[in-house]
Simulated scan of single mutants.
Amino acid sequence: MKLNHLNLCVHDITEASDFFQKIFDFHLLERKGDAVAIVSDRESFTLVLSNTRAFGGESSTYPKDFHIGFYVDTAEEVDRFYDRLAAANIGPDHGPRKIRDGYSLYFNAIDGLLFEVTCLNR
């Protein structure tokens, strides 16, 4: 079984879509006004970004420890990602560091969501 897609509820479709394209190199597959944007990475994972308010729903909030994690192959890639965030004026509270079995960077972005970029020690 392979995970095909995930729906992430956000407050601003444009901001979220631009963020995933600029920061994580996703590409836009489809956009439906301010309601839905569908983006995909280079590994055939699809992320559906939806604005629940556009469908008459309430704003979404995620639990405190909810996060979105990405794995990269090397510690150098984590460092380069940190530099990419700095260039985009997205300032993590601290730089990458060794956490558990990996070298990780945590930061908050769109709607305060927590993101992780990690290289596992192999």
Rank of each mutant, 00 (worst) to 15 (best):
N4I: 07
N4C: 08
L8Q: 03
V10G: 01
D12T: 02
S17F: 02
D18E: 14
F19Q: 02
F20K: 02
Q21M: 13
I23L: 10
F24V: 03
F26C: 07
L28W: 08
L28E: 10
L28P: 04
L29H: 14
E30G: 08
G33V: 07
G33Y: 08
D34P: 11
A35S: 15
S40Q: 14
D41S: 14
F45D: 04
T46D: 11
N51M: 07
N51W: 06
N51F: 05
T52S: 15
R53Q: 15
A54N: 11
F55S: 14
F55G: 09
G56F: 06
G57R: 10
S59H: 13
T61N: 14
Y62E: 07
K64M: 10
K64I: 11
D65Q: 10
H67P: 05
H67G: 09
H67C: 08
I68C: 06
G69P: 01
G69C: 05
F70W: 01
Y71L: 05
V72D: 00
V72H: 00
D73G: 11
T74G: 05
T74A: 06
T74I: 04
A75S: 12
E76T: 11
E77P: 01
R80F: 02
Y82Q: 07
R84Q: 07
L85V: 04
L85W: 04
A86R: 13
A88Y: 06
A88D: 07
N89Q: 12
I90F: 06
P92L: 03
P92S: 08
G95M: 05
G95D: 06
P96H: 05
R97S: 15
I99E: 09
I99C: 05
R100T: 15
G102P: 03
G102M: 05
Y103M: 06
L105C: 04
Y106M: 01
F107M: 02
N108V: 09
A109W: 01
A109S: 07
A109Y: 00
I110K: 02
G112I: 08
G112C: 08
G112S: 08
L113Y: 06
L114Q: 07
C119V: 01
C119L: 03
N121L: 12
N121D: 14
